[in-house]
């Protein structure tokens, strides 16, 4: 199997609205692919298309080497999914909800329900009606349903939604264990960029329906912008001297100056010297690099202009 997920020119339109526009994704087996985008960027529409829940207007979708075709055809026994907010039959208990999923997944091993309940830490809620669960526990139930049949590919829409900080860490470790230990491929959308940053081996950014960037996690360091951040007690003098020296300046919240020029980033000592001579000695001077969040916000802002 070359790719766990492969889309070619995937597009979806709802009347005049182009929700997804010619998205070509390639997710390798064993990867954790973080799918980022603002609200309404097309993340969930893409995920629904991967799961055969909506029919593409154009293009094709292949998961685990099998075409996702009309009539809901696809290798679903090998895929676990969590789409948008988790849902469950409110009058059924957690265990009953999972029992329904077990039977519809055609899993003959009856113990699989108990195992996944233990694994997701919801044993004390197993006999509770799903309608009484907190958002976090409902999310755990949704994840339990996705993992019940020990799938090869997990397609997760905002898996950390509603979880408390400890829960976020727990799920991160669980996903990491699944990929490292069992070779499971994870395709996850998230708005918690720090989570994606920590977990994903590859990142795709979707904006206004278009996949605007794909990068390996290691690549972020290479392509992320670097800048020199300066703080001083005499901001006006600093501003003037740097302007006269020909630096392009942008001010930042918290009374700091940011220089993006390569000559500033490469030679911060020269900047410091100029500031000292002008009577605006720096109280803070550091070369900083944008993180995933900065990179994402810069990229989506650029594409919106």
């Amino acid at each position: 199997m070359e790719y766990a997920i492969e889309t070619n020119g995937l597009s979806k339109s709802y009347r005049e609205v182009r929700a997804v526009d010619a998205v070509s994704l390639r997710v390798m087996p064993g990867e954790i692919y973080g799918f980022l985008g603002l609200n309404g960027a097309g993340k969930t529409t893409t995920i629904r298309a991967l799961l055969g829940m909506i029919r593409p207007s154009e293009g094709s979708v292949k998961v685990l080497d099998q075409d996702v075709g009309p009539r809901g055809r696809g290798p679903w026994s090998r895929i676990g999914h969590l789409v948008e907010r988790p849902s469950a039959y409110p009058e059924l208990t957690v265990r009953e909800n999972l029992e329904i999923a077990r039977r519809l997944q055609k899993i003959t091993d009856k113990e699989s329900t108990s195992r996944v309940i233990e694994r997701l830490g919801i044993a004390s809620y197993a006999q509770r009606k799903a309608g009484t669960l907190s958002t976090g526990n409902l999310q755990r139930l949704g994840l339990a349903r996705a993992l019940l049949h020990e799938p090869e590919l997990l397609i997760l829409d905002e898996p950390a939604n509603g979880l408390d900080p400890a829960g976020v860490v727990e799920i991160r470790e669980l996903l990491r264990e699944l990929t490292h230990g069992k070779g499971v491929t994870v395709f996850m959308s998230s708005h918690i960029l720090t989570e994606v940053d920590r977990l994903a081996t590859r990142i795709g950014i979707i904006h206004k329906g278009k996949l605007i960037e794909e990068l390996d996690a290691g690549q972020l360091d290479q392509i992320s912008a670097r800048f020199l951040v300066i703080k001083t007690r005499n901001m006006n003098a600093a501003f003037n001297v740097l302007k006269d020296a020909g630096y392009s300046i942008s001010t930042e919240p918290g009374d700091s100056i940011r220089l993006k020029d390569a000559r500033a980033v490469d030679a911060p000592d020269e900047v410091a010297q100029a500031l000292v001579h002008a009577g605006a000695s720096p109280t803070y001077l550091a070369v900083e690099q944008e993180n995933l969040e900065d990179h994402f916000l810069r990229l989506t802002a650029e594409k919106s202009e």
């Binding site: 829940m53 809901g72 789409v83 948008e84 849902s87 039959y89 999923a101 519809l104």
Partner: peptide, 17 residues
């Protein structure tokens, strides 16, 4: 109840459901 999405991508065909 938004549970329909749990009945769509399954090895049990939609017709059977």
């Amino acid at each position: 109840d938004h549970t329909v999405k749990e009945s769509l991508a399954l090895p049990t065909p939609r017709e059977a459901i």
